[in-house]
């Protein structure tokens, strides 16, 4: 199965996300995000760090237009999605997987139903209502759950799982979309330190196996350094650092977060 997916992927152009001059102002004249541009290609993982309220979540939600950007453009694998709406936007969103801080699962549905939610953009409403997913989707869902250690929980309700297990389900749901980019909004903030590391491992590993560019909002600088190959530092709505973790110095962190007592 891995080889089949691998071959299919090899035939496709490289998956990528490009953000160009993105501006978001909730109130005119007071931009939360000011002229953000960056690009991520292939199996790269990028951490976006920055203080609370600096627009990390807004940035990620501007990518899939859950929040409409004020100006600027977003390209997913070359397709400009900033002008799309309606059905075209829905089809574009299938290519953007999203993982949430509080998992955002449907508590009353089973793990399998939650994972198959990732295919809702591909199946008709009638198929969704009758729970008749293509066999291929179901096989993939089983394989995916197996690979992240949830094979025994397939038929359990999501609200019976632990935090780490729920986030795995959330990640599996996003991967089921066969996305061209994976966005994670503070995926470890609701978890304990040990589980946080496990979740980061799962995220990075799956993004590498499926060759999906990964963008993670995270406020834990150490986790960011440890698991990603590139760090983007946001401060007051602008990018103040963009480079490999090794180059991220305490001076940069001071610029990003302000103050210095916390660095001791």
């Amino acid at each position: 199965m891995t080889t089949r997916t691998g071959n299919a992927l090899a035939a496709q152009p490289e998956r990528s996300l490009r953000v160009e001059h993105l501006v978001k102002a909730y109130q005119p004249g007071k931009p939360v995000l000011n002229d953000i541009s960056f690009e991520v290609r292939g199996q790269n993982s990028v951490a976006i760090i920055g203080p609370s309220g600096t627009g990390k979540s807004t940035l990620i939600r501007c990518v899939n237009k859950l929040i409409p950007p004020t100006s600027g453009a977003v390209f997913v694998s070359g397709e400009n999605i900033s002008r799309l709406s309606g059905r075209a936007l829905r089809h574009a969103r299938r290519k953007i997987g999203m993982v949430f801080q509080e998992f955002n699962l449907v508590e009353r549905l089973t793990v399998m139903e939650n994972v198959l939610c990732g295919r809702l953009g591909y199946v008709s409403v009638w198929q969704a209502w009758r729970r008749t997913y293509p066999q291929d989707d179901i096989d993939r869902a089983f394989a995916l759950l197996e690979s992240i250690g949830l094979a025994d929980f397939v038929h359990q309700r999501a609200d019976s799982l632990s935090g780490g297990q729920r986030q795995r389900v959330g990640i599996a749901r996003a991967i089921m979309q066969e996305p061209h980019v994976l966005l994670a909004d503070e995926p470890t903030s609701s978890l304990d330190p040990k589980t946080s590391v496990e979740i980061m491992e799962v995220l990075v590993q799956l993004s590498e196996v499926h060759r999906i560019p990964l963008i993670i909002n995270i406020h834990d600088v150490e986790l960011a350094r440890r698991f990603t190959s590139r760090i983007i530092g946001l401060s007051q709505g602008g990018i103040v650092f963009d480079g490999p973790p090794a180059e991220l110095s305490n001076d940069h962190l001071k610029t990003i977060y302000g103050g210095e007592a916390w660095l001791q």
């Binding site: 969103r93 953007i96 999203m98 955002n104 549905l109 969704a128």
Partner: peptide
């Protein structure tokens, strides 16, 4: 509204969002 947000983000049609979330 959290699951609703998640399913909207995955590109699910509105009716499917109603049915599942």
């Amino acid at each position: 509204l959290k699951p609703v947000e998640a399913l909207r983000a995955s590109g699910a049609p509105f009716i499917s969002v109603i049915i599942y979330a």
